[in-house]
Computed example of a mutant assay.
Amino acid sequence: MCDAYEVVGRTHNAIGLTGPVDPTRRPYHSRPFLVLHAERFARALLETVTDPRLRELPLTGGVDQWADSTDLLDRQDAINAAVDAIV
């Protein structure tokens, strides 16, 4: 997967929506995994947003990044309610 993520990172840089972001994989804290740390790309993209209302919205990520509950993840209505509460 890291190979694919690095290709996407290089493609992001080639498109030029932001300044260059290093597209190489990095350690995931002290765990033995390498990841892209895609939040770097999200931050770079956020810097290009000019609408102040959009800039004020939180970066919440995907639901599985902030909720570790299969009961929640199996219910779209619950996910929608949780997202609405965050925003």
Rank of each mutant, 00 (worst) to 15 (best):
A81I: 13
L46D: 06
L72T: 03
P58Y: 00
D68F: 15
T60K: 05
A38K: 11
A82Y: 00
A78K: 07
T48A: 02
L72D: 01
A82L: 05
V49N: 05
I79F: 02
T50R: 08
D51E: 07
D51Q: 06
L57P: 10
P58S: 05
L59I: 12
L36I: 13
V63S: 10
N80C: 11
L34M: 14
V35M: 11
P58V: 02
A78M: 05
A82W: 00
D74W: 07
A81S: 07
L34N: 13
A42D: 10
L46F: 14
G62N: 14
E47A: 13
A82K: 03
I79Q: 03
L45Q: 04
E56T: 12
F33D: 10
R53D: 12
P32H: 14
D71C: 04
D77C: 01
V49Q: 06
P52M: 04
F33R: 03
Q65C: 15
A44N: 04
D64L: 09
R53H: 12
G61N: 03
F41N: 02
T50K: 07
W66G: 07
T70E: 08
S30L: 15
I79M: 01
S30F: 15
Q76M: 07
D51I: 00
L45S: 04
A42V: 11
L54S: 08
F33H: 08
T60P: 01
S30K: 13
T70I: 06
F33L: 11
R31N: 13
D71R: 10
R43G: 05
L57W: 12
L46T: 06
F33M: 09
S30G: 15
D51H: 08
F33K: 05
D77G: 04
D68P: 08
H37L: 15
R75V: 00
L73N: 04
V49K: 07
T48F: 07
R75M: 00
D71Q: 07
I79D: 00
L59P: 08
R55I: 02
L34C: 14
R43F: 11
L59T: 08
T70K: 09
R53K: 15
A78Y: 08
L54T: 08
S69N: 03
H37D: 14
Q76S: 10
R40T: 08
G61K: 04
V49T: 07
L57D: 04
T50D: 13
E56A: 14
T50I: 04
G61W: 01
Q65Y: 15
R40C: 07
L45M: 06
T48I: 02
D74N: 06
L72A: 01
E39Y: 13
L73P: 04
Q65G: 12
L73T: 05
D68T: 06
E56P: 07
P52Q: 05
V49C: 05
R31D: 13
R40P: 02
I79H: 01
G61E: 00
P52F: 03
E47W: 06
L36A: 13
L59A: 12
L46A: 08
A78S: 08
I79N: 00
E39T: 12
W66I: 03
L59D: 06
V63K: 07
H37C: 15
R53T: 10
L45R: 01
I79G: 00
L45C: 03
E47M: 09
A44K: 04
